[in-house]
């Protein structure tokens, strides 16, 4: 993958520096979140600074990953992101009892948002679904990777349980069943590009923000519970929508490979949601009770960013939701 297109002053300055040899550039000394033009400029800059930790860029020297200059710029962007997420979460505090599993499932179930899957199931056009797949590819091609960062940061029980879930995400040892790979095959069959990051330049702001919040939670040990709360909410809102997506793809005559990706998630995520809530989040909070609120913060961030991605696309298409 090459660096994406800059979307403003901050990302332009950052990407210009990243194309240079690390250590020689003084260009970033004046660069900070303060020079950002807008939210998209901040989001693509943060996205690229996280990608240095995943697969990197062909036109960027790998040594930039731990450059203090990049980390300083990133920290400013993360501070802004965290403040925004916490502010939105403040208006959606959970109702807590002594049953965390029930509270978490209820919190997710009671959340009201637009249903992209329902629209795809019954009404979406082929062109709209292709656009949706391109947008979704930014995450699905690294599906499960952001929560993999959390593994070494957990105590015994939640660690083993997270690995049990992740193992299934990564194909149970069979590369042909790796979820990221199922999506690659689906994209190819649908006539789309399947390389990692292929559609980043057309990613909407909510898509970038959703990606960023997952990397942010995953890469900060203090936010490990938020990463797992995000995972739990993601899994708990997947089975039924995945079935609707598969039905919509069948209705429009999309190839089996892409419908299969969603069919796989109907059954897989019916398992994963139980594991994420009952074997990962609940035991973690039993061991570290102070982390309870972060679980809900993460769950909220998942529901909220998914909503905003859906609403943004539905608005573009002129669909009431």
């Amino acid at each position: 993958m090459l660096l994406p297109k800059a979307r403003g002053t901050l990302s332009e300055q950052l990407f210009t520096a990243l194309r240079e040899e690390p250590g020689t550039a003084v260009a970033l000394s004046a660069t900070s979140v303060d020079v950002a033009d807008d939210a998209e400029d901040r989001a693509i800059a943060l996205w690229a600074s996280y990608e240095l930790h995943y697969r990197g860029f062909e036109d960027v020297d790998d040594r930039w990953e731990w450059s203090p200059d990049v980390l300083r710029v990133r920290a400013g962007l993360e501070e802004a992101l965290e403040a925004e997420v916490r502010e939105r979460y403040a208006a959606h505090q959970p109702e807590r009892t002594d049953d965390l599993a029930k509270d978490l499932f209820d919190y997710v179930a009671d959340h009201d948002g637009p249903s992209m899957a329902r629209y795809v199931q019954t009404e979406a056009t082929e062109a709209q679904v292709l656009e949706l797949l391109r947008q979704k590819s930014v995450y699905h091609l690294k599906e499960a990777d952001p929560s993999a960062w959390v593994v070494p940061r957990l105590p015994t029980g939640p660690k083993a349980a997270l690995m049990e879930l992740q193992f299934d995400e990564y194909g149970d040892g069979n590369p042909a069943r790796l979820h990221q790979h199922l999506f690659e095959r689906g994209l190819e069959a649908a006539g789309l590009r399947s390389e990692y990051g292929a559609y980043v330049d057309e990613a909407t702001l909510p898509v970038l923000e959703s990606n960023n919040v997952q990397s942010f939670f995953g890469l900060h040990r203090r936010l490990r519970a938020a990463s797992l709360g995000h995972l739990a909410a993601f899994e708990a809102t997947s089975s039924i929508p995945s079935r609707r997506m598969a039905q919509g793809l069948e209705r429009l005559g999309f190839p089996d490979e892409i419908a299969d990706y969603y069919r796989e998630h109907v059954e897989a995520d019916a398992v994963h949601e139980q594991l994420a809530v009952r074997d990962i989040c609940v035991p973690l909070v039993e061991l570290e009770p102070a982390l309870a609120d972060d679980v809900f913060l993460g769950a909220f961030a998942c529901l909220d960013t998914e909503d905003r991605q859906a609403r943004d696309l539905l608005d573009r298409w002129g669909v009431e939701a």
Binding site: A109, S238, S239, I240, R243, V266, E267, D269, A270, V271, E273
Partner: peptide, 12 residues
């Protein structure tokens, strides 16, 4: 709809 496997329908 995918018995014997769960497909999340219990939530509805």
């Amino acid at each position: 709809a995918t018995k014997p496997w769960c497909d999340g329908t219990h939530k509805l």
